[in-house]
């Protein structure tokens, strides 16, 4: 069995082996520590000159990566916690994402910024957030999130090969998760299709006609599957699941195709509910389809509390998704 962490680590090793322009930089990434979440484990031993441990200087890490990318290298920057992306916002929004366009396509910025997001580990308000929504809709910046259905190694390798900047969002709870296997366990009763391209969107269709569509990405796919199972077992409600790898810019065709069949949308995300990813999907969907019903599941508009009892209430649960499904169907 192989985990998401294994696959991400493998992709970094393979990319550094196959292309000596690939550099990895970030805080505390050298062996034996190998990074706060061990995604960079082994790299500094194998490629000591191309793995650069930095001071605590997030803006400089991403700014330097941007400059490296402009001048012929392929940098992969690690931001230790996703909460710290606020410190690199200027670099991503005003520099890396803009250069190609404002310089009239004369340059490319092949830059990856990897960062772990998400809560449920009791890390409290500044180490548990899902801030990716702040970077959705920034022209020139791709936001990508791995999951257990596609191969995270392929996804990260594609991001490293991408000639444009990519913000790569890794939910902390995904690292230890096993990859799913086609036709087995959770996937046994589903037909799985995926779009072509580097960052596929997956469509999971149950064997019976579905009543609703669950849209999700990253770790929340784990919750959405459990909710879908509960809805079948307890309520005989069937769900299609649309799983995004690319959050921004987005291709909503698979979602729209599913909604043509179900007419009901539940979005699931771990960021705060207001003005978020689900809100945009809902808006696009109702603009497209008259009479569509929508329900969003997301975190409350509060900081993520340190106490587990409070954190559980603030972040979306499987039961919240089930309840949204019941509400929208009944």
């Amino acid at each position: 069995m192989t985990t998401v962490l294994d696959r991400l680590n493998f992709a970094l090793h393979r990319s550094m082996e196959s292309d000596e322009r690939v550099y990895v930089l970030g805080e505390d990434i050298l062996d034996p520590y190998g990074g706060a979440f061990k995604v960079t484990r082994g790299l500094s031993t194998k490629f000591p000159t191309r793995v650069l441990t930095t001071p605590i200087s997030e803006a400089a890490i991403v700014g330097m990566a941007s400059g490296m990318a402009l001048r012929g290298l392929i940098p992969v920057a690690e931001i230790m916690f996703g909460d710290f992306v606020t410190l690199v916002a200027d670099q991503l929004v005003n520099h890396a994402s803009k250069f190609r366009w404002i310089y009239n396509n004369l340059v490319r910025v092949p830059l990856v910024v990897r960062t772990p997001m998400g809560g449920r580990r009791g890390y409290g308000p500044t180490h548990s957030q899902s801030l990716e929504k702040m970077f959705l809709g920034v022209p020139g910046l791709k936001v990508i999130a791995p999951n257990t259905l596609g191969d995270p190694a392929d996804l990260l390798a594609a991001a490293i090969s991408d000639e444009d900047p990519v913000l790569f969002i890794e939910h902390k709870l995904l690292y230890t998760r096993q990859l799913l296997e086609a036709g087995k366990a959770d996937l046994r009763d589903y037909q799985v299709d995926q779009t072509f391209g580097d960052y596929p969107t997956f469509t999971m269709r149950p064997t019976k006609p579905a009543h609703l569509t669950l849209a999700c990405y990253g770790y929340n796919f784990e919750l959405a599957r459990l909710a879908a199972l509960d809805l079948i077992m307890e309520h005989e409600i069937f769900s299609e699941i649309i799983l995004f790898s690319q959050l921004s810019p987005f291709n909503l065709d698979p979602l729209f195709q599913s909604l043509e069949r179900t007419g009901k949308l539940v979005t699931v995300e771990e960021g705060t509910i207001s003005l978020g990813w689900g809100a945009e999907l809902a808006a696009r969907s109702v603009e497209k389809m008259r009479g569509l019903m929508v329900r969003r599941v997301a975190a409350l508009d509060l900081p993520v509390a340190n106490a587990k009892s409070l954190e559980d209430k603030i972040l979306p649960s499987v039961q919240d998704i089930v309840n949204a499904g019941l509400y929208i169907v009944e």
Partner: peptide, 24 residues
């Protein structure tokens, strides 16, 4: 030659460029 209108933000980019020139 490159320019951008953000104060300060261009400096780490220039440092990254210097790293690239050094490495290459």
């Amino acid at each position: 030659f490159y320019s951008n209108g953000i104060q300060g933000g261009i400096v780490p980019i220039a440092a990254g460029m210097a790293l690239a020139e050094k490495e290459r």
